[in-house]
Amino acid sequence: MIYSISDLHLDYTKEKTMTLFGDRWADYEERIFHNWKETVKDEDLVLVAGDISWAMSLKSAYYDLIRIDEMPGQKVFIKGNHDYWWSSLNKNNSLNLKSIFFLQNNYFEFNDYCIVGTRGWDYLTEDCEEYNIYRRELLRLELSLNSAPKGKKKICMLHYPPFTNEKKPDDFHYILKEHGVTKCVYGHLHGPGLSNVVEGVVDGVEYFCTSSDYLQFKPIKIVETTIAK
Score class of each variant (00 low, 15 high):
residue 50 G to D: 10
residue 55 A to S: 15
residue 59 K to G: 11
residue 79 K to G: 04
residue 56 M to L: 02
residue 86 W to F: 14
residue 86 W to M: 08
residue 57 S to R: 09
residue 61 A to L: 07
residue 92 N to C: 13
residue 67 R to D: 09
residue 75 K to G: 04
residue 83 D to E: 09
residue 48 V to S: 10
residue 52 I to R: 12
residue 95 L to G: 13
residue 89 L to M: 15
residue 93 N to F: 08
residue 82 H to V: 05
residue 54 W to L: 03
residue 72 P to N: 07
residue 84 Y to I: 00
residue 50 G to H: 09
residue 62 Y to N: 01
residue 59 K to L: 03
residue 72 P to A: 05
residue 55 A to N: 02
residue 74 Q to R: 15
residue 47 L to A: 00
residue 89 L to G: 08
residue 75 K to C: 02
residue 48 V to A: 02
residue 68 I to R: 07
residue 58 L to Y: 03
residue 79 K to E: 15
residue 71 M to Q: 15
residue 85 W to V: 02
residue 87 S to N: 14
residue 63 Y to K: 14
residue 78 I to D: 03
residue 68 I to A: 08
residue 95 L to Y: 13
residue 72 P to V: 04
residue 56 M to K: 11
residue 92 N to Y: 05
residue 70 E to M: 13
residue 54 W to I: 09
residue 61 A to S: 13
residue 86 W to N: 06
residue 64 D to N: 08
residue 65 L to E: 02
residue 62 Y to V: 00
residue 92 N to P: 09
residue 60 S to H: 13
residue 48 V to L: 09
residue 69 D to R: 05
residue 56 M to Y: 08
residue 90 N to M: 12
residue 60 S to N: 14
residue 55 A to R: 07
residue 91 K to M: 15
residue 62 Y to G: 01
residue 89 L to I: 15
residue 74 Q to T: 10
residue 73 G to S: 01
residue 65 L to T: 03
residue 88 S to L: 01
residue 71 M to L: 15
residue 93 N to K: 15
residue 92 N to R: 11
residue 92 N to V: 02
residue 82 H to N: 13
residue 66 I to T: 10
residue 75 K to M: 03
residue 55 A to Y: 07
residue 86 W to C: 08
residue 78 I to V: 12
residue 49 A to S: 15
residue 49 A to P: 10
residue 83 D to S: 06
residue 67 R to F: 06
residue 74 Q to G: 14
residue 77 F to C: 08
residue 67 R to M: 13
residue 73 G to I: 01
residue 82 H to C: 11
residue 65 L to S: 05
residue 63 Y to L: 13
residue 84 Y to D: 09
residue 72 P to K: 04
residue 54 W to K: 13
residue 58 L to N: 03
residue 53 S to L: 00
residue 59 K to H: 09
residue 54 W to Y: 15
residue 85 W to Q: 08
residue 82 H to S: 11
residue 54 W to S: 07
residue 54 W to G: 08
residue 84 Y to M: 10
residue 63 Y to A: 09
residue 62 Y to F: 15
residue 61 A to P: 09
residue 49 A to D: 10
residue 61 A to R: 06
residue 87 S to H: 11
residue 84 Y to F: 14
residue 80 G to M: 01
residue 95 L to A: 10
residue 58 L to S: 00
residue 76 V to A: 05
residue 83 D to V: 00
residue 90 N to V: 12
residue 89 L to A: 08
residue 59 K to A: 11
residue 91 K to Y: 12
residue 51 D to R: 06
residue 95 L to H: 11
residue 57 S to M: 00
residue 76 V to D: 06
residue 93 N to E: 15
residue 90 N to R: 15
residue 94 S to Y: 06
residue 49 A to R: 04
residue 54 W to Q: 12
residue 77 F to K: 07
residue 64 D to G: 04
